[in-house]
Write a protein that binds this DNA or RNA. Structure first.
Length: 307
DNA sequence: CGTCCTTCTTACTTATCTTC
DNA sequence: GAAGATAAGTAAGAAGGACG
């Protein structure tokens, strides 16, 4: 088909026909006479090379080609509506759009159940998507606009990115309840793991890209020490399950540990080094600073996560 | 180069025909 | 009889040529 001869008004007619399944009612819906809709349908038929709608009694039944086009045309019209609508205001009750967030499963666990409940209550036609990814992917996805918000610990950000602090977090060590080496050393839950023991016990770390050097390892290196990493996992949930298996211990953010420790039978301990508090926050592209929908989303995230 | 006029195209309307 | 298709007429805008 020749895209140059595609009039956007034809898509409005097509969309109305998909909804009404009637040329007359489609015309009433979009403010055209029945013959005008009929003529528009004819032009569409020539463009697409398909009947699109065939009459069956008093109904216009879409062909398979029309059904295949229907969703894509609706999405395209929604997108055009968004482009030309007033971006400074946002009405969640009628908004039809998708918000995409990116971060580790630690953030999705803490944020999304509550955020989803709040968003659904106010914006029934909004789709929330949380995608898995570490801070390293952040600049790229924000720059190209595929992600609305990323959640991460402090990272170096480009000048076009904005940051809002949400809460402080620190790492704690988790081990299976009654872990024999810790018990033998007389270390109780809540106490710090002695440096020598910490370095000698096998550990699992969370790493989305397989990297082995975390803030803890840098702190150990500064003291001329090294720990025994035997496993890396991209998700904290998997890390916690591995720790629950009993053969490794692992470090995880304190808030995440508080949520999972009880159900998985884990004890939590303080780190001997590298247990400083970090400023966790959200990042976005500054082009969305004044965008009503984006501001609404940020406010919702802030309400759920802010300390 | 800018303005005016004519012609052509397109999409609309009402009226009417055709189909179910 | 209801609803889609077609015919005829109309208005608006684009394109192109003539002219100062």
């Amino acid at each position: 088909m020749n895209i140059a001869s595609l009039d956007l008004n034809l898509l409005r007619v097509f969309d109305a026909l998909m909804v009404e399944r009637s040329v007359t009612r489609a015309g009433e819906r979009i403010g055209l006479s029945q013959p005008a809709v009929s003529a528009a349908l004819n032009r569409l038929r020539h463009l697409v090379g398909d009947q699109l709608f065939v009459r069956e009694g008093n109904a216009m039944v879409p062909t398979p080609r029309a059904l295949a086009l229907g969703i894509a045309v609706r999405e395209a019209l929604d997108r055009i509506d968004q482009v030309f609508s007033d971006h400074s205001t946002f009405d969640p009750s009628i908004a039809r759009r998708t918000f995409r967030l990116l971060g580790s499963d630690y953030f999705s666990t803490m944020l999304m159940p509550d955020l989803s409940r709040r968003v659904l209550a106010e914006a029934p036609n909004v789709l929330l998507q949380f995608l898995d990814g570490g801070p390293r992917a952040m600049p790229h996805v924000l720059s190209e606009g595929t992600i609305d918000l990323t959640l991460a610990p402090p990272v170096d950000i480009p000048e076009w990115a904005a940051f809002q602090f949400l809460f402080k977090s620190r790492l704690v060590v988790a081990a299976k309840k009654g872990q024999p080496d810790l018990a033998k050393a007389g270390i109780k839950a809540g106490e710090a793991v002695p440096l020598d023991l910490f370095c000698s016990l096998p550990q699992v770390i969370c790493s989305t890209d397989g990297g082995l050097s975390t803030a803890i390892d840098s702190a150990l290196h500064a003291r001329g020490r090294k720990r025994r990493i035997v496993l890396t996992m991209p998700h904290f949930h998997a890390l916690a399950l591995a720790v629950a298996g009993g053969h490794v211990m692992g470090s995880m953010p304190s808030q995440f540990a508080a949520i999972t420790a009880e159900s998985l039978g884990l004890d939590l301990f303080e780190l001997p080094v590298g247990g400083d508090e970090l400023d966790m926050g959200m990042y976005w592209h500054r082009r969305y600073d004044g965008d009503g929908a984006h501001r609404w989303l940020r406010e919702k995230v802030r309400t759920v996560l802010e300390a």
